[in-house]
């Protein structure tokens, strides 16, 4: 081995270490910021706590837990609409988290509009149930593992001459194949769910919902801040929204905050 290749080897060995170290200091920095935000929350200084959590999000990092904590700080600061927004964001990343669901329900009970949700189609409920069993990351890992098992089982089936082993490997491969396709589809659904931009929280104190996307449209109903709406269509800076009870109308994008 000559000196040149030695040098390349050294760089190759050092690079991951440098990377790991920088990731570590990154994590340390965040841990410090998080503890400061938590401290402010404990002291009842909620605006300071909000600022600290938001500074972490502004630096490009987030998690469901972080959104949840920020929602809590907003709630304590009596900013219900913002707390609902962040609880909704947390609920997407942590679909089964009991605390997130509880706090979101509590925050919703403080909003003015009480909307009775229509009963969704049972199949949709089932699919959502299965989708929310795992996070997108977990679905991805399940997908990879099941692919490995499927292909491994197929290999054993194809290459072994022993008939009992062949039968079992075929069986396992088929189950894994089923898992592969279900995790693939549920993972795609989950990814769509967390990256969707067609749901929003109303941020204006009260908004008149119009029948058409212009100021001249006739007034349909009044919504108040904190209400969750689904965006169905858009035209300029107007958005067609639908409520949980099926009512539809047009409002301006400036009245909304996308989840």
């Amino acid at each position: 081995m000559n000196r040149r290749t030695m040098k390349i080897w050294r760089i190759c060995m050092l690079l991951p270490m440098v990377l790991m170290f920088s990731v570590y200091t990154f994590a340390q920095d965040f841990q410090f910021k998080l503890s400061l935000a938590e401290e402010s929350y404990k002291d009842g200084n909620y605006p300071e706590s909000i600022n600290r959590y938001k500074s972490i999000i502004d630096s490009g990092f987030s998690s469901g837990e972080l959104y949840y904590n920020l929602g809590n700080a907003y709630f304590k600061n009596r900013d219900i609409k913002s707390s609902i927004l962040y609880y909704e964001r947390a609920a997407r990343l942590l679909p089964r988290d009991e605390n997130v669901i509880f706090n979101l329900e509590l925050a919703r009970s403080y909003t003015t509009d009480k909307i009775s949700e229509l009963n969704p189609f049972f199949l949709k409920v089932w699919i959502q149930y299965f989708r929310d069993l795992l996070s997108e990351k977990a679905w991805g890992i399940v997908n990879i593992i099941s692919l490995f098992i499927t292909l491994g089982g197929m290999l054993v089936f194809l290459l072994s001459g022993w008939s009992d082993l062949q039968r079992w490997s075929m069986f396992i491969a088929l189950i894994a194949l089923f898992m592969f396709f279900s995790s693939l589809s549920l993972g795609i659904l989950q990814k769509q769910n967390i990256t969707r931009t067609d749901e929003a929280i109303l941020f204006s104190p009260s908004v008149m919902v119009k029948s058409s996307p212009d100021e001249g449209g006739s007034n349909l109903f009044i919504l108040h801040e904190g209400t969750k709406v689904k965006i169905m269509d858009q035209l300029g800076d107007w958005r067609e929204i639908r409520l949980g009870d099926g009512n539809k109308g047009w409002i301006r994008i400036t009245d909304l905050e996308i989840i």
């Binding site: 990092f61 987030s62 904590n69 990814k191 967390i194």
Partner: peptide
Amino acid sequence: IRYLKTGDLSLKSIDYVF
């Protein structure tokens, strides 16, 4: 409301989807 989540909040890049 329930209390904050504490400890490591498993932060990751905001747009990262595995």
